Amino acid sequence: MKHLLQCMCGNNMSLPLLKEAATVSGSEKETAAVIFLHGLGDTGQGWADTMTEFQLPHVKYIFPHAPRIPVTLNLKSVMPAWFDLMGLTPDSPEDESGIKKAADNIKAIIEHEAKNGIPPNRIMLGGFSQGGALSLYTALTCQHQLGGVVALSCWLPLHKSFPSASSGNRNLPILQCHGEMDTMIPVQFGAMTAEMLKSLVDPKMITFKTYPGLSHSSSHQEMEAVKEFIEKHLPRI
């Protein structure tokens, strides 16, 4: 299973993203929401299919699809991507404007859900690879304290701009998971990200789990940990 992330600013611009998003509805009154962002070249549908096995009855799951854009890392091929990628090392140049625009798009979805009755502290962001990176950046720069972040096989974008970019979300719960055999985004990058996050968020709020034998993908064991994290921080009311 391969997965990475996008969105749009302003009230109306985020609605097409929401309209086209794959969703998994709760089986009872929805009192919480998880917005989960796929990886590079993927769509939200694969993650929607995966999450049906791990869903909670009171939680609404939203899986937006990234726009198709040229990606420098892949020889300018046009594919679903939340922002452009120039490289996958900590010192690679970054698409700052694209990252900020994508984060604004996700924040617009948060605002939309909040207007429809789910408060921001009952909304969690999550994502895989590029999607996980965007979910981390968005949550840390969001004016609201969110319910948490699930960051799978990813990194913190624009890390040099923190902590000045951070909105002071010291108590943001973060679950970071990484495969120990990941050759695309090595687990060392995940560990560096976890250390960096400890300077932005109360270290007690950060859980970093690694999975032996797991490459740049997810596993049943990892998804069970995700479900437990969501259940803990978005409990039934």
Rank of each mutant, 00 (worst) to 15 (best):
A225P: 03
S167M: 13
M181A: 15
P119F: 13
L214E: 05
Q188A: 13
L175K: 05
L5I: 03
T207P: 11
G179K: 12
V187I: 12
S166H: 12
L136T: 04
Q45E: 11
S215D: 08
P80Q: 08
Q45W: 06
Q188H: 10
V150L: 11
G98N: 04
S164T: 15
P67A: 13
D202T: 15
K76F: 08
G213W: 00
L172A: 14
M181Q: 08
L73M: 03
N12D: 13
S129W: 06
V187A: 09
A81S: 13
L75W: 00
Y211V: 05
E195W: 10
Y137H: 07
Y211A: 06
K2G: 04
K107G: 11
G87A: 01
F189R: 01
A33N: 03
A103P: 10
P16I: 12
S166G: 12
A194Y: 13
I118L: 06
F208S: 15
L73Q: 01
L146H: 10
L125Q: 02
H58A: 06
L152C: 04
F189Y: 08
G98C: 03
I62L: 05
D49M: 06
I109L: 10
R68E: 15
A114D: 12
P64C: 05
H159W: 14
T43H: 02
M1I: 02
L156H: 13
F208E: 09
T210Q: 12
M184Q: 00
I69F: 12
A194F: 12
T183F: 06
G117P: 09
N105I: 01
Q130I: 03
I109H: 00
L37T: 00
N105V: 03
Y211M: 06
E228A: 15
D104C: 15
Q188P: 00
V226L: 08
E111W: 04
M8E: 08
Y211S: 06
